[in-house]
Write a protein that binds this DNA or RNA. Structure first.
Lengths: 163, 163
DNA sequence: CGCTTCTGTTTGACATGTCAAGCAGACTGT
DNA sequence: ACAGTCTGCTTGACATGTCAAACAGAAGCG
């Protein structure tokens, strides 16, 4: 009954799996060594720094980086301790919380971004030729299009399969 | 100074990043729903089940799935509680611990594997054509070859860069 | 208004991962 | 054989992630 993976399919799948494991490990390691940031920190800082005024509603931010709101709330508390961000009340909504980059946070992410790009180039992008990059983009487009259907990014989710 | 990513490079990198995030999420979700296993559980069970006699030294197992020994030790304890594996003394080395699949563990992984393959096909492999699969294998080969140099799989590691 | 319900966020309890000891059995050289 | 060291594993303290409950303000409605 089960359609097992052929050799080629297995090679692609295991390749992806191992790539994911080792590449992420390496990039995380570099990031920590170079800038003292975790991947999580980097995601938060880079996303907020791209927003107008370097500030963003907590919920929006969580959605942007696909985290649970609770995870973000905890993590922002920790980053706040370290002086990277601040929490601010939201003018238009009394319940709201706004995450704001501190000066230190801004300085940190600017420096980190440079080193991070270097790391990404060294361990990934610069190893690939244009055809590889194009193929990768194609692959992710295909898969992401499918996943967006299965689990809509935000509208009423009813998980078509696996109830 | 910094060589930022071009549009194409950025597309490939972000595509990979998002792919990794969402695909893993989906597959993890399926695995939990279908078989009550976490990714971690699956890695352990499938690796041990592939070994002779369904048993494996703790250290070897840790190396095979690229975990720290400590992580594995903790996790095996939890899986032991759930009746999926057992710990056994090692005949040839008094310090050694051997992880052994229980009957329940074996039954579980066999069932889980079927559903897992289906999930991998549905959300990934079956979405790609042979050219995509080949490209993916090429990409991971290139990157993994590089990473193996930077951080040797086990021999004396001296981390050439970033001291 | 005053109620009910909804929403955005926080919180606490608990699961899982990491790091640095701790420990006991194996190995080595004298 | 035995002191010193190495190895394989376990443990405990702590960091981070998840889930469900608790809240307070916003919204809709009689």
């Amino acid at each position: 009954m089960t359609r097992w993976l052929s050799d080629d399919e297995m090679r692609a799948w295991l390749g992806y799996r191992r790539l994911r494991t080792l590449l992420d490990l390496q990039i995380t390691r570099d990031l920590a060594a170079d800038s003292g940031l975790s991947d999580a920190d980097y995601d938060v800082l880079s996303t907020v720094s791209a927003a107008a005024d370097h500030r963003m509603r907590l919920g929006e931010l969580a959605a942007a980086i696909r985290w649970s709101v609770s995870r973000l709330s905890h993590h922002v508390s920790r980053m706040q301790q370290r002086g990277l961000v601040t929490r601010d009340d939201c003018a238009s909504d009394g319940r709201g919380a706004t995450v704001v980059l501190t000066d230190q946070g801004w300085a940190t992410i600017q420096e980190a971004a440079k080193l991070h790009v270097a790391s990404v180039r060294e361990h990934f992008i610069d190893l690939l030729d244009p055809a590889d990059l194009a193929a990768l983009a194609t692959i992710s487009d295909k898969v992401l299009a499918h996943l967006d259907q299965v689990t809509p990014p935000d509208p009423a989710r009813k998980s078509s399969k696996r109830p």
